[in-house]
Amino acid sequence: MLRRSDVIGWLLASPLVLVLLAFLVVPIGTIFVVSFWQATEFSIIPAFTLENYEFLLTSPVTYKVFWATFQYAAICWAATLLIGFIVAYYLAFHIRSNNTRMVLFLLCTIPFLTSNIIRMISWIPFLGRNGIANQTLMELGLIDQPLEWLLYSDFAVILAFVHLNTLFMITPIFNSMMRIDRSLIEAARDNGASDWQILWNVIIPLTKPGIMIGTIFVLTLVMGDFITVRFMSGSQSANVGRLISNDIALLQYPSASATSMVLLVTVLMIIGALMRFVNIRKEL
């Protein structure tokens, strides 16, 4: 029996549901189906085969690339968490005026609303062979030759990831911190807790939901990426996203689809595990 509130709810949610069905559910379903199809050099053939998965799961390249993807994700997670936590902590607990806090937070947010590709390109003059970093280090006499690993390297990939995605840690952690009842901190201080004890025993436990949400964002963005790795490594490093985009460039859609499904399952398993620790709707 449908209640009136159910009907109203569905009417209001229907545009959202329709868009997500048409441009998310059906496309992912299609990827799933195509991942069992065969391909020639020029076209895809709707004939059932497990070849794509067989090839994928028996190729050592797959495991190497997935391992590299996990490594990028882990390092970027640690770096963005550390930076994001410190920045959020500073804004939430050390800035006294609400207006200043809003302005500083906006300053962190604005770059997120500009082009990621331009932000990647803008590392070239800094990291390049004759870039600012190398010139400064040579002038200081710390090195005799330009460092080659600054640009087009894994170092550059991780630097760009951190540059692009730290905001996704700052925002939810900052949000959690702003919801902490200040009297709890006063109470801890009155009872003789040191700053470190307050941080460790009061603030961090109460910030966990924000940390979880930030983690979900950063992990999915890094694991699903292909463009940052391609551009910042100068096509020298690979992750799963690049494996997929290379197959797409060769028109090998079934193979790209199979890799996509494996990536999707991996990401959803990780997110599913993380979501058990946090109720996103309650935290907003």
């Binding site: 496309p27 992912i28 990827i31 694991m223 699903g224 996203g241 997929i244 985009s245 859609y253 999707l264």
Partner: peptide, 9 residues
């Protein structure tokens, strides 16, 4: 869901 999957799908 990774962007490239939406694109491909």
């Amino acid at each position: 869901i990774p962007s490239i999957l939406v694109s491909l799908g």
